[in-house]
Design a binder for these strands. Sequence first.
RNA 1: GGGCGGAUAGCUCAGUUGGAAGAGCGCUGCCCUUACAAGGCAGAGGUCACAGGUUCGAUCCCUGUUCCGCCUACCA
Length: 800
Amino acid sequence: QWKAASGNTIVEQQKQLGESCDWERLRFTMDEGLSKAVLEVFVRLYEEGLIYRGERLINWCPRCLTALSDIEVEHEEVKGRLFHIRYPVADNPSVSLVVATTRPETMLGDTGVAVHPDDPRYRHLIGKNIHLPLTRREIPVVGDAILVDLEFGTGAVKITPAHDFNDYEAGERHQLPRLPIFDHQALLDPTALTSAGVEEDIIAAIARLPVAKARATIEQALKERGLLVKVEDHKMAIGKCYRCKTIVEPYLSPQWFVDIKPLAEPAIRAVEEGRIRIIPEGWINNYLGWMRDIKDWCISRQIWWGHQIPAWYCERCNEPFIHRQTNATGAVTRITLLQGAKPVVARSAPAVCPQCSGQQWLRDPDVLDTWFSSGLWPFSTLGWPEETPELKTYYPTSTLVTGLDILFFWVARMIMLGLKFMPDVPFRDVYIHALVRDAEGQKMSKSKGNVIDPLHVMDQFGTDALRFTLASMASPGRDLKLAEERIEGYRNFANKIWNAARFSLMYLEGPRTSRPSVERSFADRWILSRLNSAIRTVTSELDVYRFDRAASALYHFIWHEYCDWYLELIKPALQNPSHPDGPVTRQTLVDTLETTMRLLHPFMPFLTEEIWQTIPHEGESIVIQRFPSPEQAWDAPDAEPRFLLLEQAVSLIRTGRALLNYPPGQQIEYGVAHDNPDKQRQLQQLEPHLAHLSRGVPAISAQTAWPPAQRLRLVAEGLTIGLLVSGDVDLKKALDRLVKQREAQDKEISRLTGKLDNKEFAAKAPAEVLTEHRERLRNLQHDQALLASSEQQLRTLLGA
RNA sequence: GGGCGGAUAGCUCAGUUGGAAGAGCGCUGCCCUUACAAGGCAGAGGUCACAGGUUCGAUCCCUGUUCCGCCUACCA
């Protein structure tokens, strides 16, 4: 139904069926429920006087032969030419006004010339008549401060009310007649030119020419008469039809309009008052600005697909206003209802004409703008105007996710029509997602050929990887460049998860015992606590539509906490069948993996479902499970700092191993000392983990108690590790590192000292900043002593 | 013309009550260590566009400049 509403499907069908398409059949296939809603809305708005028919200047596509609303017109900057044309004063041809225009061919439809009322050059001409060149007409000079910009061009502007929007307005202000000179295909119309008093030879030269060709002819004629003063290059914007890219013409024709202000006002208030939230907020002003400046909505289209307008015309009463265009064989190809026709708007054709009792009715051939029906989507899909249970349950909905490009096309219309026909807004939140661009930042477009085909990307990297990538890049207010490397990175992430699940399954054989978190092992308590934290972050970020931060929290937790550390930490318990922690660890492994899959599921639905089905679980499908919520019992405030200590020690040992070029497999011996007794004790408790993760034999004791040997000592935040140096190793790299570290610390120490010595800093900075700075300085100075001693020992070693 | 946004590592981007500069990819070195080489470990790399201002202190706040996007408009 949505596709029908948007018209996209119909357009595709139109293409496929070509000329042989059965229009009536196609109209019939449009959803009946939607048609009913459209009919109802149209009639109700008409009865309230909010829909009217009138002859107005509208944007017209001379190729599609249909009206276009403002937002269906695309603007393009082009190089144009500005023609300066001499218009002689009627009663004194020696005096003339020079007007500037980019469209000299429209001059034949001029019905006035405007100058600024304050312009001393021309003020005296206001009220006089001007002879319009190439015609037998005289037109008045009017003063108009709105149309004329004193600074621009010559200061005199021709007025062509039938072919220019501003001139239309100006024509209204000065009661100037409207003289159209183009027909509906934007060809110069000989009949109209005759009524516009154009000279016969000019008519003969330009009749039935398209505007571009007529322009050259007019230019030539003006030149021959010496009326073309000059031509200069000029940058300008032209409008093109969003469908066929034909240059649109302002065209005078009778159309159906919605009086939009009364609908827009409640829609503005709904956003101002926060009953509808737009996220990110930056777009609110965009929306409000557009809505406050909104113009009546032209809803009739002269195309054959769409919902036909429910208006009927008595053929007898309206006979003079029904224009039938025929082809060579006499068949009617197009019916146009001219200005003056009197419609009867009703849900079905009237029986008899109230005026003449005639019974022959012609239904308006126009159809509605596709966004008219799309705008009804929030309630028409739910059975409106019937009061269905669905309508009651699902209106309003919570969130509408959309791109900026249809915020006005679609979202604004849904808000206006929803508020008009329902007692509440159609949705609470509107989330505007970023526009995806290609790797060069270009907007994707079919004509440019730089479209990244999602199906192709999904084949290459997987659907979950693409989905996760888009989520991770969804920073608000910023368009995103989709680069393949990024997707590839998340493909690897998906692979990592898959392997982690495979690993878990390998070791799940055997009994599992559930215990309260506090009774589980260090590793278990730590990961449960971290999982809790991940749940909190992901949930709160999703609440505020920060999909990027939620995705990155998941990525970090799964890869760099769960895989890198937890799975490594529990290997001894899993791989040794008689390990006492085995049963509880296996249970924790299931608990955490299962929860993590549910947490990740919205981001990677396929992978998580697949894994979830293979691990112990309850329920039929992950998609209908509850989204995880934090378990307070999982918080382990003691385990987290312990882990950081362990991580720090392991990293330092690994650094030493790399510096000494000891291969990862080689068992090493080292001493571990911390100058904080508490932490030293904690390290002793973590000894098995330390040994396992470092693949080595630690001696955790004061440095003085380490077995005598040649050692490389590394220092970080009070922690010293001393690796046994054996065999033929190059200590130069290690010395370089120590020196570099010491220099960096020197710099930091002098920075902190300088800051703390600054009296104003000491006086004005908050107390906690001061204590934190002092603490850091003390630690650094302490490390500095350790480093210095380490460096000296190393130099001694090198010297020996 | 008006409005909005951006300028942070080689690339793509995070970084909100102002108080030690972050991630991914890429790069360098060592590893096929029994989940994973689409991987592991350890590293290198930044005057946070420019110029002023506010502040004890600025990537963050203010002003101006340059460059790049987007939206919008009738400059004939």
